[in-house]
Design a protein around this nucleic acid. Structure first.
Length: 300
DNA sequence: AATGCGTGGTC
DNA sequence: TGACCAAGCAT
């Protein structure tokens, strides 16, 4: 008798989604944007801030931001300079401008109400596949597959027996749908629960399999926790890159409350060629503007 | 589809 | 200590 056929894409068995939902009930972090009566606008703001940025850094900025701009129209009325300063050091400050642009679109086209449909959300600046579904699910309680880097990693291990998640695939939504509980209310909780499992237990570095509620049905563990096959993805450099220089330049301009001349930007970076290139790119991105007399400032 | 885009914590 | 990592998006 031969061994049972094993499909590499086989589901880990019935009830797996429910087990993850039940684990979430006991293990979830108490994050402010998950509390009752947090509206879709607040959820949208949290999701944009959380793009590539750790929870701990987002929390205080999110609170301040919503206290100041509790509605899309209130943010739309702010200047880019105000928005860039309020963004603080969350990183990728183009997100702040796009969030303001999204607020403008919501105020003008949607009556100051965050749209609830995924296509309408995806049409907003800075809102992509992940964020649109996250807002529909977490902000409006819709049954929606929500796939981020955590979810891709959990599915890669639990379902496919691979060590790493890799890039988004067309099959991601179907993989998640196969795990999602039938009950709509539990399905909504499942979307956040599997993200939380990836964030707390099935982490990228050394997964805490001892704490995992589905370790006994995990395809990756059952295969002996094989190492990642294939080339390691490159970690992007930061020191010396234009990203670092742009950050330094913005640091100077956030601190300055009057327009500054080019000489005031020199301490930000020694290499004049790179400094100039980065200043140009900030101007192009709308993160910096030049006054009539040739001075630089955050856009008023 | 590969690349650029910030920042700071962790081990 | 420096590599790695953190709820993506746009181009």
């Amino acid at each position: 008798m031969t061994s049972l056929p094993t499909s590499p894409a086989q589901a880990p068995g019935p009830g797996t989604g429910d087990v993850i939902v039940d684990w979430f009930a006991t293990a979830a972090r108490d994050l402010p944007w998950r509390r009752p009566r947090v509206d879709a606008w607040a959820v949208l703001v949290s999701e944009v801030m959380l793009q590539q940025t750790p929870v701990a850094r987002v929390e205080p900025v999110w609170r301040d931001w919503l206290a100041r701009w509790p509605t899309p129209s209130s943010l739309a009325a702010a200047t880019p300079a105000e928005v860039i300063r309020a963004w603080g050091k969350l990183g990728y400050p183009r997100r702040a401008l796009r969030l303001r642009d999204a607020a403008t679109a919501i105020a003008e086209r949607h009556g100051d109400v965050v749209p609830a449909s995924v296509p309408e959300l995806e049409a907003l600046p800075g809102i992509g596949t992940y964020t649109a579904r996250a807002v529909a699910c977490f902000g409006y309680g819709q049954r929606q597959p929500v796939v981020d880097t955590n979810v891709r990693r959990v599915v890669a291990r639990l379902v496919h027996g691979r060590a790493e998640g890799g890039n988004a695939r067309a099959s991601d939504l179907a993989d998640i749908a196969a795990l999602t509980p039938e009950d709509d209310d539990r399905a909504v909780r499942f979307s956040v629960a599997i993200m939380e499992l990836g964030a707390l237990v099935c982490v990228a570095g050394t997964p805490r399999c001892g704490a995992c509620p589905v370790r006994d049905r995990c395809a990756w563990r059952l295969a002996g926790s094989p190492a990642h096959a294939g080339p390691a993805r490159r970690v992007q450099k930061f020191a010396g890159t234009d990203r670092q220089v742009r950050g330094r330049l913005l640091d100077v301009l956030r601190a300055a409350h009057e327009p500054v001349d080019a000489a005031a930007l020199e301490p930000a970076w020694d290499d004049a060629v790179q400094r100039s290139r980065c200043l140009d790119s900030l101007l192009t991105d709308g993160l910096v503007e030049q006054t009539e007399d040739g001075l630089f400032r955050l856009p008023a």
